[in-house]
């Protein structure tokens, strides 16, 4: 198995469903951070069978709202001196700003570049959100 050294300080996003790591990497713009980042794919996992892991060195300000939308299995560990010092809870956010577009083609957020789409949780089970502006429901469907 490929060995990747532990990071001294930073964030480990663990238990990502296999195949979603690259997508999260791109959505969080991790390639633009300027910090060392490692993406591990298809790592054997007791819980998931296979999983992806992302390690980011010297950076802890990860957008957990987006991770909450992607999957409840994900864990976010904050690392100091090679030890986990905090586990940031990942949950489905009540409010989401700018992470996805409104599904209503007539909504102003799809035509006015100035406005950032804002949604309020309508149904957690189906990941359904109500648009702040047009009040239509958008179901979040990743990938």
């Amino acid at each position: 198995m490929i060995e990747v050294a532990a990071i001294k300080k930073g964030t480990v996003i663990d238990h990502i469903a296999a195949g979603q790591g690259l997508w999260i990497f791109n959505k969080l713009n991790l390639g633009q951070l300027g910090h060392p980042v490692v993406l591990l794919m298809n790592v054997p996992s007791k819980r998931l069978g296979k999983k992806d892991i992302i390690k980011i060195e010297n950076y802890t300000d990860v957008d957990t709202a987006m991770l909450g939308l992607i999957g409840s299995s994900i864990t976010v560990n904050i690392i100091e001196n090679e030890h986990v010092v905090d586990k940031v809870p990942v949950f489905i956010p009540d409010e989401v700003r700018g992470l996805f577009s409104c599904g209503n083609p007539r909504c102003v957020t799809n035509s006015d570049a100035y406005v950032i789409p804002l949604f309020h949780l309508h149904d957690a089970r189906s990941l359904a959100y109500v648009c702040e502006y047009c009040e239509e429901i958008t179901k979040v469907a990743w990938k």
């Binding site: 209503n104 909504c107 102003v108 006015d112 702040e132 047009c134 009040e135």
Partner: peptide, 24 residues
Amino acid sequence: KEGAPKLAAQYSRVPLINGGDGGH
């Protein structure tokens, strides 16, 4: 566009009335 008056009201310093927004 639906929601346009709501967006406009966020920036308006005077009372803004929705005179109809799309099918909303």
